[in-house]
């Protein structure tokens, strides 16, 4: 297990370094269109071939990984922090606080976010550079994606609130925020970790889905989301199997994220 964790760390680090050094590693600028060779097979010039507009697939994968690996965790962190705040406070205080907070969470879960996102996108200014659009997209996902985690966190906090060690801490005079921050929160860490890691692939895929609706990352900037859209074309994937590379990388990266988690966190 330790070896696997080390391998996972190594892989993730190398991917991070490669994406951060994309300017030097990538064979071509990610937006440059080699129009004479769309859908090209892998070659020395284009190690992963080209996409339907003739853009170098490896370069787009590197730059797209940079966008997704930085922004999806950022969105997951935002969502997890909101969930920790709402779920943690609700579970700790209990009573009508919990009812109100969980009511708000249920309401948030039942709202048609898709339409809200469409409305938000329709209201945004059009002349935003692609990088701004990608930040807005992930920020929206983070702001709107907290509610499922909040329920889990609330349930975990409620269990901890009624646990023996918290009772013992109370008996020793530890109360209020001190009890929450010193006793409850550290024990919620595994739940929050799990919610954080689980949210990352969800946000990556959400961004891909939003791309189809016009809310995703704007062209020509690549992201795993819009790279995965290349898989929509069944025949192109059959003819060019290397197009699965973004999906393969996504699966490996998510698996690595799971492997680097301390085993105790999962057990607890």
């Amino acid at each position: 297990m330790k070896t696997l964790r080390l391998l996972a760390w190594g892989f993730l680090l190398s991917i991070f370094v490669a994406t951060l050094l994309a300017e030097f590693v990538a064979p071509a600028p990610y937006a440059e269109q080699f129009r004479e060779s769309p859908n090209a097979l892998p070659s020395w010039q284009h190690p992963l071939g080209t996409d339907e507009l003739g853009r170098d697939a490896l370069s787009r994968l590197l730059y797209g990984s940079r966008v997704s690996l930085l922004l999806a965790p950022a969105a997951a962190l935002l969502a997890t922090l909101i969930a920790a705040l709402v779920g943690g406070v609700a579970g700790y205080l209990g009573g009508w606080w919990e009812r109100v907070a969980m009511g708000a969470t249920d309401l948030s879960l039942s709202l048609p976010w898709l339409f809200l996102l469409l409305t938000v996108r329709a209201m945004l200014p059009l002349n935003e550079p692609p990088m701004t659009s990608v930040v807005i997209t992930f920020a929206l996902l983070g702001l709107l994606g907290w509610s499922p985690s909040a329920r889990v966190v609330c349930a975990g906090t409620r269990t901890l609130r009624n646990s023996e060690f918290v009772l013992q801490a109370r008996a020793c005079g530890c109360r209020g925020w001190r009890l929450l921050l010193r006793q409850v929160l550290p024990n919620l860490k595994p739940v929050l970790y799990a919610q954080f890691w689980v949210s990352i692939p969800i946000f990556i895929l959400s961004e891909a889905n939003l791309g189809i609706l016009g809310l995703g990352v704007a062209e020509p900037l690549p992201s795993w989301g819009n790279l995965l859209r290349g898989l929509e074309n069944y025949s192109a994937v059959l003819n060019n199997p290397w197009r699965v590379a973004p999906l393969g990388l996504l699966i490996i990266v998510v698996s690595c994220f799971q492997l680097i988690l301390p085993l105790e966190d999962f057990r607890s």
Partner: peptide, 14 residues
């Protein structure tokens, strides 16, 4: 050129 894709009703509205 900034390319923006919109859902059809939003586009028609604009």
């Amino acid at each position: 050129l900034n390319v923006v894709t919109l859902d059809f009703p939003s586009l028609i509205e604009r």
